[in-house]
Amino acid sequence: MRYAMAVDTRKCVGCSDCVVACQTENNVPIGFCRDWVVEVTDGTYPQLEMEIRSERCNHCVNAPCVRCCPTGASHFDAGGIVMVTHNDCIGCGACIASCPYDARYPHPSGYVDKCTFCIHRLKNGMAPACVDVCPTKCLYFGDLDDPNSEVSVVLRMRKSKTLIPEAGTEPQLYFLI
């Protein structure tokens, strides 16, 4: 099993519903977020091109945060999901410094927190909160090892990219372009 997510940058309108859904579902403290929206505008008016990306932890195959964690609190869970065990985390911040995507934040309770692909929902057969709530249905989630999963199909049909693949992290968050 290899969980992955694909974000359709052509369909995303940057409404930030995914951010609010995540904050509500996961009780993210005020002032922090596990996912966020990036808008990139290229060109000069009137020849403009815009890319809107809903970003979150890339659940990398070669995750630097897991490698540099001194206690093993950061680890790979089922399906390659990068997780933090809160009571194993000492809050040293090494993982925050090691993440090229800045996907982690220090939770006010002391441990480091990040996107979990809503693992608690996956266990009950549901999709992550951000995927379920998206009004334009631009988020695709599923198992890459299953050729018939939504994400496998859409990644076969469309051109896609990952963020900073040259960092060698093998990110599993794909952006359809």
């Binding site: 000492i90 809050g91 090494a94 220090p106």
Partner: peptide
């Protein structure tokens, strides 16, 4: 002092992580 989860500092000494420089240092 710099740890955010201070009371859990002892976890450094219940783990040996060869890939983590922080573990080597501890």
């Amino acid at each position: 002092i710099d740890l955010r989860h201070k009371l859990f500092f002892w976890q450094l000494y219940t783990n040996i992580k060869l890939q983590s420089p922080m573990s080597w240092g501890a």
